[in-house]
């Protein structure tokens, strides 16, 4: 057993499952939006506001954003542990990615609740 503290859950099975489930959530969201846009063509800002003004849309979008962050972290962590061998550099890059992802999440929530 190889232990690792920087992976998403510290457990390969949980990481693997989380990456797949988050992918399913994201695909479902894209399909949902595609169906919505097919039925209600969005032409101007007011229709965007109407869509994202619903509280359920905000909740769903935040859930998708969380899934996106988890999915991205697991993927990028895997790439870093494959290719970045000096530990100090890897930890610095991991920290940078965590900050960027956290920033995107907060920014996304801020945008949603400003609608």
């Amino acid at each position: 057993m190889v232990s690792n503290v920087t992976s998403y859950s510290g457990n390969g099975l949980r990481d693997w499952l989380a990456q797949r489930l988050s992918a399913v959530v994201m695909v479902a969201y894209v399909v949902l939006l595609a169906v919505y846009f097919a039925m209600h063509p969005v032409a101007e800002q007011t229709s965007w506001q109407q869509l994202f003004g619903h509280v359920w849309m905000k909740i769903i979008t935040v859930i998708v954003l969380l899934n996106l962050v988890v999915h991205a972290w697991i993927g990028i962590w895997t790439i870093f542990t494959d290719y970045i061998k000096p530990m100090w550099l890897r930890v610095c890059l991991e920290l940078a990615v965590i900050l960027v992802l956290a920033g995107y999440l907060v920014w996304g929530i801020d945008i949603l609740w400003s609608v």
Binding site: M1, V2, S3, N4, N11, G12, T78, T81, D82
Partner: peptide
């Protein structure tokens, strides 16, 4: 199976 469930042994 327990010995294999870390992020590297199998899941890499």
């Amino acid at each position: 199976l327990k010995d294999l469930e870390d992020p590297f042994s199998v899941f890499r």
